[in-house]
Design a protein around this nucleic acid. Sequence first.
RNA 1: GGGCGCUUAGCUCAGUUGGUAGAGCAUUAGCCUUACAAGCUAAGGGUCAGUGGUUCGAGCCCACUAGCGCCCACCA
Length: 865
Amino acid sequence: MKKELPKKYNHLDIEKKWTSFWKENKVYDWDSTRPREETFVVDTPPPTVSGSLHVGHVFSYTHTDLIVRYQRMKGKNIFYPMGWDDNGLPTERRVQNYYRIRCDPKVPYKSDWEPEHDPKDKKEIEHVSRQNFIEACNKLTHKDEEVFKELWSQLALSVDWSLEYATIDKHSRKISQASFLDLVKKGHAFSTESPTMWDIDFQSAIAQAELEDKELDGAYHDIQFKVADSEKTFEISTTRPELLAACIAVVAHPDDERYQPLFGKEAITPIFNMKVPILPADHAEPDKGTGILMVCTFGDIMDVEWWKQSTLPIRQIIGRNGRLLPVTFGEAPFDSLDNEKANKAYKEIEGLYPKQARKKMPEVLGASLIGEIRPTRHPVKFFEKGDRPLEFIPTRQWFVRVMNHKERLIELGKQVTWHPEHMYSRFENWVNGLNQEWCYSRQRFFGVPFPVWYPVKDDGETDYENPIFAKEEDLPVDPLAEAPDSYDESQRDIPGGFTGDPDVMDTWSTSSMTPQIVSHWGINTERHKQLFPMDLRPQGHDIIRTWAFTTIVKSMHHEDSIPWHNICLSGWILDPDRKKMSKSKGNTVTPGHLLEEYSSDGVRYWSARARLGTDTAFDDQVFKVGRKLVTKLFNASRFVLQQFERLEVDPNSYLKNSASEEIDKSFLEELEKVVTFAGKSYENFDYAAALQQTEDLFWDFCDHYLELVKVRAYEDEESPERESALSTLAISLNVFLRLLAPVLPYVTEEVWSCSFGTENNSIHKNNWPTSEEFSNQSKPLEEGLFEVAKKMMSDIRGAKTSAQKSLKWPVEKLEVKASESFINKAKMVESDILRAANCSSSIEPTSLKNSEAIEIVVTLAKENS
RNA sequence: GGGCGCUUAGCUCAGUUGGUAGAGCAUUAGCCUUACAAGCUAAGGGUCAGUGGUUCGAGCCCACUAGCGCCCACCA
């Protein structure tokens, strides 16, 4: 005999019990011996380990778990790993603040150094070696990961923890570096020195995918240029006058009649007196500003593009730290007609940041500034995590080719099924808008290094043309700590020796390989084949251009394949003001107290109500509804199981029975419909629709069906009527538990273990209900009997309520005025209705011809007998 | 400037292939009823953003308009 359910449902104790049960019994483990067709593979997003998780994480990770739990109950072998994204800038930033340290590659390594965190002590910032800094990163991320893992377990994410990885661990670094070497081998990666978008605070290159526009105040400065060997002048309207010294040309649209006579001539820049060519260029728009603009090295991406197809030299005046570089006019490429004057003017702005220099420019320009400065507001490109505008600075970087692969990327994007479908257009938009190759290198410390060294020529120059790549079997390598083959560590950074590539890879270089990291691409071919392409990539829609995009780029370059068959995009959590909840906005809610107050199942319910791609407002009310459903399910289960306990019979023995009473048959028919619908919905990743239908019928079950059959189930004598009720109760509870198991894993497991489950058999494996289970049930005489009974019950209750009587108050007379069809149906379920209504006389029908109207007249007894 | 989505009850949202507008919450009134007071029952509440079209019939299909949100864009 099973153990009885406790009187009250204490979610905290029960969650703890099942969390450890699932772990001990390896309920969620992947079986590597089962074939691909029986396996469902998830490319779990590795959460960024920087501080704490908020409800937004809980929300989207639950969505994946719902889908996974459905697939597992369908009998699928589940591959559901968890990774930690602990590589990259967010971690660096957090470590810098947490331990008050900075990485300085010039500082020597200290083996006995330990990072220390003291929230009160505002000690001076300590500069540590790269190795020490990486150790500090590892220490802090491990600490955070334990906290995350705890939360995921409590939330009942059914991941296989033996598949855990971190994007900075040895295995991930190896795969990242192998990916890079493969890209190089296939000609998809290359290094070059070229103007690159540069963040002056982080002092690193950044990629197009990391750009963000910010609206900034700016101002048009109208600057007068002279035409060489002529008295003519023209004006250029610019918001970046501080780049005047970097001007290499002025351009206007080829069709612009105002400037056509000047093409081919030279202009003379004011103040610095440099001769620059006047040329036609398609990107100049006649109706913007004065229609003629200066090309500076470099003000924006168009300057870069234009410069690339020109043969003009770069006049770089902004340095890596963002300040205006020292420049000497008179030395190429800064040729001036008046070096002395130019140098003097430049001294005024040298060493300043662009913003400061801009302020100073009116003074420097003097009479060359025409009219008033006109304020404007315009979008300026920023690194998404940066505080100051980007600059274009020529540096040596590694790039991955994407520009020549747009068509193929779009084809592959179309081969993936997007949920919801319309999110695909964001991917296509992004690919079509690509205007640069993927900048792959970063000038940072905590990341995956490039497995590359360069020879140092005898004159001390680095020979970038002949890179030395690591051997695949040696990966991962750190070129700053290890010497390449055929060299010795003593030859590092000396003429005739070698130097290590100092950069690390873009964080997406690793994240884009999550499928290959977990499939052990290149290491275990069998395993890779068994898992790739994967079934599902879940992620946020804000990182389609980064994570989804780069993952597709990699699988295209490596195997000309899609990485997964489906991609599911979760929406965002909005705060009550409808703003996206995010750490940077400081409006996050942490999930700990929610889980405690509303239970994990209650919080999961809240997540499950939101369809994919739909943003959801954070709303306490929905958590309450979730908790209420959990309590209801528990209590209804207790009631149903009590019927079997009372008779000392096993509810399992009723599951194969056929119901004989019409109301029972009708309810089972409704239940079968929901089973079919829910299965279809889950197949299409629409867990929310499945939940809604299930929940609706479950409340009908509690509010109406249970009330209708209660008395019949209570009967002391065995009878076909009682057997039919008991069978329907057993079947319904059994099916409801399984339908709700993905959303409410704890309470369903608890009830299951006390009812239908056998020893160590979790509800979460191999138990999804099917319509075949209903094949031995006979159809009710009419469809919709349950609906008719509901309508009758509702009206009877209404009559009692408006008479301010209790619901068990006896009914003397029950008249039904309705169509013949309605009356017929009511008659078919009459006995249950009369019992539930506490009515001793039979229904008095009045048949209305040609009328849809239904009137139920309830005459209550005078006395409560 | 290009693209996508949303607009249904006070709030949060459903609304399957077109067929009499739904749920929960909130509000109000009532009820200790042999599972449940962390409960139960019922009531009130809507020009489905607007305009036009297709149709016997439109919340749903089509066109246009407005507001909100998001994604993208070469931003002088």
